[in-house]
Nucleic acid binder design. Structure first.
Lengths: 346, 346
DNA sequence: CTGAAAGCGCTTACAG
DNA sequence: CTGAAAGCGCTTACAG
């Protein structure tokens, strides 16, 4: 029988053992102020010996005297995917507000200027840290670079931005997502398929990364052929049109890879060709997609845990502000989940 | 632009506004002691108005005066799956010990008596709550029933036990797991397959639930045929033997469903028939299985997030002890994850 | 270079 | 029925 006990040590105990005050122990632990070398090493030895870890609760309580504020900026758009990210953030907002940490959440339109304004507004509110789902434009990057210069930690969530390095990016490994999609096509078509691809924007990195990952996988599979790639601008009407075009143009097409938005429109297009059987895989779990999976139009969705992305982003900043700890990696990826009809509802 | 502010309210503020002491506010919030009806309703109104939520940090700090102890009993066995559950538990143990909550973790052999002894030991240590991965035997159930009678909350994790109702069971929906396996076979075999099944124990509920879920899915698919079900007693050597037997006995077998342990043994059997191509799906992500997925012997593993099961179990008890809050559901299921070669390493 | 005191938000005896 | 005080573990001025 293996037993493991965990007992709590407090800074008071450390202080008593070292024959000093708690203030001095604090100075050693957090490297503030000057401590005589001999006392410092005596205290450090005891800390190591007892594996002392300061109480989170105590720290949080003190932090309340500092009136910590965290700002969040996420994109406002009719896509219910964004609601999940928002939900994840709000879960933590509630928790943290009970910890005495104020959070200000802004949902802004998909415009560069709107996002810049939101940043300025949050600054005027005196935030100490920022979570942002950034629009990939130079003016936004510039503002973020300035924030970090002022020592204000920034976490980017869900999407990345060039020309700026946050303390941590929380998101999804788009390349591996694309590879996973190809892996799944491989299995469900027994390595032989003629694939049509409908992407959102050629220029959107998240979309092109998924396609790159997909290509990486199929490059060793001569019988998995990519017929064509079309753009749907993440728009359902456009998606309907280009998907129909692909299906008519390529009678041999038996697989459809939906890289981005417009899944509903593509689904409608698929249904309008009732004679054709086209195996389809898409990304992200939104209500209209669920419906298409249930009725068999789409076989699988590859999902990225948007709720988790929201909560994780705030957790990173919490650790940074309260425990003064940077995340271990500068990229934190959520799981790549494959959802079929059977494991859709959980 | 939508903005959402979250500001913290304290019991001190409530007290001031209601013109009472913090003690009285506490009495109202936690229903302890008697409060004059008029003061109570005045305080309650303010609490509702400001949406007051007591500070977690404050509560945790107070709880330290009560010396809370949580006991954990998990099964000790050479299966690395159990190490993941242990790891999940240890993650929270570290966190909670910094909160002043003591946790005692015991890993005990897969024997009814060993588990009963472990329960007695933890009781003698004065635990206030228990997490257990129970062995499904009446003596264990009896002990657990007694604990709950004494008001000691119990959470079962990973596996269930009959004749005892915990405040919450954290685990996996085995039935839906089985359905998902069948769904995946459906996709990768284009609805036509002759399936051999190798289970662990016919009597183990988790194993038979998976098979029931599987059957539920294939019952509408006349071309997905189950050829036979064999037991491998979760043992690799036995697994090797029965898998070989199935493959030789059924030349038409082109799919293999591995329901429980012994995946490595079954993998070796598959490799020994190099001429046959048998599509194989199994459960759980352990090192030997990863190897078989990488080399293509196994196409997919359906996984149950054992680490998450460990952390979640302790989180439930934490909420119960600190916030006096029961979990919303009495069954908390972790996600059903499908892992292929491409999304195995994350 | 170091210590004593006050305070973060909550609950727990105790006093009235 | 209600209030004042002490204390949980930590950090922050302030004093020496």
């Amino acid at each position: 029988m293996d037993v493991c006990f965990s007992v709590m040590i407090t800074s008071k105990q450390i202080a008593e053992m070292a024959g000093v005050s708690r203030g001095t122990v604090d100075r050693v632990i957090n490297n503030r102020g000057i401590v005589k070398d001999s006392t410092r090493s005596r205290i450090e030895k005891i800390i190591r010996l007892l594996n002392y870890k300061p109480s989170r609760a105590g720290k949080v309580l003190v932090s309340h005297q500092k009136k910590i504020k965290i700002g969040c900026i996420i994109i406002k758009a009719p896509n219910p995917f964004y609601d999940d990210l928002y939900r994840g953030i709000m879960l933590k907002v509630e928790e943290y507000s009970s910890y005495g940490i104020e959070v200000i959440v802004e949902r802004v339109d998909f415009f560069c200027e709107a996002q810049c304004q939101a940043i300025d507004f949050l600054l005027s509110q005196g935030i100490n840290a920022l979570v942002i789902q950034p629009i990939n434009e130079p003016p936004v990057a510039e503002k973020l670079v300035n924030l970090e210069k002022q020592g204000l930690p920034v976490v980017t969530t869900n999407t990345d931005i060039e020309e700026f390095k946050p303390i941590c990016h929380v998101g999804n490994d788009f390349f591996t997502c694309g590879k996973t999609a190809a892996n799944l096509f491989d299995l469900i078509t027994e390595e032989k398929c003629n694939i049509g691809i409908v992407t959102g924007f050629h220029k959107a990195r998240s979309h092109s990364d998924r396609i790159d990952g997909f290509r990486e996988y199929v490059k060793d599979k001569p019988e998995m052929r990519i017929l064509a790639i079309e753009e749907n601008l993440d728009d359902d009407i456009e998606s309907f049109a280009v998907t129909r075009k692909l299906i008519s143009l390529y009678p041999e097409m038996d697989a459809l890879f939906l890289v981005a938005g417009g899944v509903y429109g593509a689904g409608r297009a698929l249904k309008s060709f009732s004679g054709r059987r086209i195996k389809t895989i898409c990304f992200d779990d939104v209500p209209t997609t669920r419906e298409l999976i249930r009725d068999g139009t789409i076989l699988a969705a590859i999902c990225q845990q948007p709720v988790r992305q929201g909560t994780l982003s705030l957790e990173v900043l919490f650790e940074y502000l309260i425990d003064n700890k940077r995340p271990e990696k500068d990229e934190l990826y959520t799981d790549i989940q494959i959802k079929l009809k059977s494991n859709l509802d959980l």
